[in-house]
Amino acid sequence: MTTQEYISSGIIESYVLGLATEEERTAFEKMCDENEEVRLARDAFELSLEQKALQNAVSPPPNLRKQVLDKLENEKQPTRNISGKVQPKAPVKTLPTAVSGTKRTSYLAAASVTLLLVSVALNYYYFRQYKTYSDKYDALLVQNAEIVKNDASKQVRLDEYATAMQHLKDPGMAIIKMAAKGVASSPDPNSMATIYWDTRTKDVFLLLNNMPQPSTGKQYQLWAIVDGLPVDAGMVDMSAGLPVAEAFAVTLEDSGGSVNPHMDQLCVIGKVS
């Protein structure tokens, strides 16, 4: 390649415009040192480029001039200190970073304190909730135990009623109504009691439908009339087997009962049908 060919290869423009690779630059610079013609061609291109650029100059904003020159004056300061050493620019930059670092740390600190407060508040809230529900739970446990107990006693009573019902429904059960009608000695003409007499087992059940409360020391006594004579059938709330009877009557006797009824104290009477 002749010098002329080299000059017109585009390497000069490539180098001047900053498009050449590192290798090309090194080779070109060597060429310029060795070949005056190449160097002059480079100078010529640079000069024409510069002149074009000056012709096409665009004025920057006018206020920029003072700004730039002031900045350059500031750049001067560090070079004129006693040691004569150029102060690195870096420390000036580290200050704001340090400040912003502190800032970030304090932001983080503030954030963690906030989070802590929120956490404490939530902990308290949830503990309160826990306490409330725990208390409610205990109350429910007690209530539940009570209900179970009630239920058991009700079950017992229900069983009793069921048994009674069984007796009442039994076709072998004789029902004798005892009324106060025609009984002059009865304290209340509306008094009424009913005898349920199991004709097979001979068990006697007495139901006091409407009997006045006996005075203190007195007690109702049930009598069965067998063969025209009254037989003690027990104090009310007491029942004993009775093989046969024509009628039943209730008298008011002294507590503990009497061997023979005071017929003047007859309250209700009913015939076995």
Binding site: E50, A53, L54, A57, V58, S59, P60, R65
Partner: peptide, 13 residues
């Protein structure tokens, strides 16, 4: 600055 800022500014733009 006075001589070259315009040429350089143009190049930057």
């Amino acid at each position: 600055y006075d001589h070259y800022s315009g040429a350089l500014y143009s190049g930057i733009l």
